[in-house]
């Protein structure tokens, strides 16, 4: 055992202690300063980029909140108000009615309201929606892509590291500035050229 007892040794140890103490404060200041230097004043929140989303269902299964904080959103200016909505009806539907066997949504979260012939309005009921993206996928594959997923910040607890983002296969999740917490599709887009004008061959 090191017997470090002795008058001058004590002061030497004290000296060492003080040195280390200063070193600790300097190190703390350095790390804090370095982090503060690259820091931002604003906080960030999590959001989905609908352009990158591949509708894989992770959003409905991986959220720490249940049902998920990710919800489907309907953009009315983009919606075609189709009588036969690809997002609403199961591909094997029997009739165009809201009976369970005709619906694509597993939780009956889409409401279908008649507007005028031949237009129907489709509304998402947020409290039923579990963010499974079935309707989003169908609407994007066959329709106007007016359904899309967004994080509802009323429900999201803004985890330091979003557990859905960790699982997202397409990097569609990222931190967005607090001031712009959504990526909403508001503007109606141009009607498709229907890829008829083929640049294929001249």
């Amino acid at each position: 055992m090191g017997d470090l007892n002795g008058p001058d040794k004590v002061s030497r140890i004290e000296f060492l202690r003080q040195g280390l103490s200063r070193l600790a404060s300097v190190a703390l200041g350095l790390v804090g300063g370095l982090a503060a230097f690259g820091s931002r004043r604003e906080n960030t929140v999590w959001q989905i980029d609908p352009a990158k989303c591949v509708k894989c269902e992770h959003c409905s299964t991986d959220c720490v909140v249940a049902p998920s904080a990710v919800k489907c959103v309907q953009s009315y200016p983009i919606c075609g108000y189709c009588r036969y909505c690809f997002g609403y009806f199961h591909p094997h539907y029997d009739e165009l009615t809201s009976a369970a066997e005709n619906q694509l949504c597993p939780t009956d979260a889409i409401e279908r309201v008649f507007v005028e012939d031949p237009y129907w309005e489709y509304n998402i009921e947020m409290d039923k929606c579990i963010g499974c993206a079935k309707c989003v996928k169908a609407c994007e594959d066959f329709g106007n892509a007016s359904f899309y997923l967004q994080v509802n910040h009323e429900i999201c607890v803004n985890c330091n590291n979003c557990s859905i983002a960790m699982q997202c296969p397409s990097d569609a999740w990222d931190r967005v500035p607090y001031d712009e917490p959504y990526r909403l599709k508001h503007e109606p887009r141009q009607v498709a050229e229907l890829s008829f004008e083929s640049p294929g061959k001249k």
């Binding site: 269902e57 199961h90 094997h92 009976a99 066997e101 579990i130």
Partner: peptide, 30 residues
Amino acid sequence: SDPIHLKSLEGRLEEMKGDPQNEAIKLQIR
């Protein structure tokens, strides 16, 4: 009980596809 992949429901939907007139299957699905 994940409603997204409910095997029993999917099976019934397949059945309905083959027999769209069968009201009993529809009732079961509902």
